[in-house]
Design a protein around this nucleic acid. Structure first.
Lengths: 240, 240
DNA sequence: ATCCCCATTCGTTGGACCAGAATATGGTTA
DNA sequence: TAACCATATTCTGGTCCAACGAATGGGGAT
């Protein structure tokens, strides 16, 4: 079962076959007919008839397009064009995202970079409803029955914070990091307890409510630094 | 509206159906059996028998995994695990037909958030060689023969900047966004010329060399704001 | 306008055939 | 006998076909 081959001499993905050609033809057809987001493709049977291929082959090609975030197929209505390429690409990227110490460090560093400096992107969109939701999520963290639920609530708080900024790319990036962040938070909860995180969140919310940029940055940096501290102690290699 | 949804983080994508569950099960199987790059999966017929699904369904799931860059299927050999999810993500994102103005603004906003605040993550790792390379790339942008090459050099500059921070995950995310950033830069070059970008880059490098955090933030924000400004000013209605 | 029924469409299944590659087989020769 | 090469066999993926179930949108009846 274990492959003994050194490495495939053909690094190229299969560029032949009916499915691949059909994907290319569909792409060309979309471009030729000027279809835009929201338009729908013909039915599978019609496509199979038009291109002279079996419906299973058409389905496989459509599956590729769906995995690529180009179309979204709804039963009875057909395949409609969507604009979710980046989300799909990030999904693909994160499919095998390993939960390793390096990834932990990367993502925690990314969170510091983003969340501490998020205030300016956040403030213009912030509403009272947002603040109420953040407080509800913070309360839910305290009421969580176990560590996993607590970590989930913690993640929900930060994800909601990021979502308020209204940047779909940033939200997608956070979404793909969710499993890693959850693991990170669970470990943190086990070592530090949840009260500290709750207090930090409350301070962050207060700073947001008062529009205090410096206070927000201070509390957020402090909050994230707590999470970073525990695990840098467990990673031997953090240099160059 | 805030009903306690247990698990669906993204209700957009279809998270049901035999194909999706099989993808998840295959993913779990790979993790459970500790399969690594080079190992091979059972045959389609064996999988269909083991999971009680038709071979066509198994094929669709395998097609998804192949589109995700997780496996590469060779005739007679079967599906072997590969480690190409990053390049697969690049393929996915390059596949897109048209880039919407929303995506442009979105990614530019993401870049602002990241790159403007990158200084603190950058400074500890910055070396003289890094500065020299940045200057070389900036010079290359000026010497580029055409707009595409100029945009490529521009992207190389920013990618190198992000890479210096030493965050591999962030660097990969930037690589995934490369096609869109390139398109963005090409359009910018056509309207604004390259001298302005070159001057901004030079100012950024100077700020880095002098360790001037505020100057770096100022010039980077200005630089990225130019790119955003042109685009928001010239957002035409998408091709109907 | 509302409700109900039906036709259409996707989702999935089971089976079939074909081309090609890996392997076993058998014959040939040193 | 043993090494070697050509052939036959046997998998495996790639494609196609026919069919059924479930869900849903639309059209007709009220």
């Amino acid at each position: 079962m274990l492959a003994a081959r050194p490495l495939p001499p053909d690094p190229d993905i299969a560029r032949s076959g009916a499915v691949h050609t059909l994907v290319a033809e569909l792409r060309a057809m979309i471009a030729a007919e000027g279809l835009v987001t929201g338009d729908s493709l013909p039915t599978e049977r019609e496509l199979s008839e038009r291109f002279g291929m079996a419906r299973n082959t058409v389905r496989e090609a459509i599956g590729v397009l769906r995995a690529y975030g180009v179309i979204e197929v709804r039963p009875k209505v057909g395949a409609v064009l969507i604009n979710r390429h980046l989300s799909a690409a990030l999904d693909v990227f994160s499919f095998q995202l390993s939960i390793s110490p390096e990834t932990f460090a990367d993502i925690q560093g990314f969170r510091q970079l983003v969340e501490v400096n998020l205030f300016d992107a956040l403030a213009p969109h912030l509403t009272m409803a947002d603040l109420a939701r953040l407080e509800a999520q913070n309360a839910a963290m305290l009421a969580a029955p176990d560590v996993a639920a607590c970590a989930a609530a913690d993640y929900a708080f930060h994800h909601a914070l990021v979502a308020i900024a209204g940047n779909a790319t940033l939200r997608d990036v956070y979404r793909i990091m969710e499993p890693v962040i959850l693991r990170l938070m669970e470990t943190g909860k086990e070592t530090r307890g949840r009260d500290m995180a709750h207090a930090s969140h409350a301070a962050i919310i207060r700073a947001l409510r008062e529009g205090d940029r410096l206070a927000y940055q201070y509390f957020m940096a402090d909050h994230l630094h707590q999470g970073l501290g525990f695990f840098t102690a467990t990673t031997p290699e953090a240099a160059p």
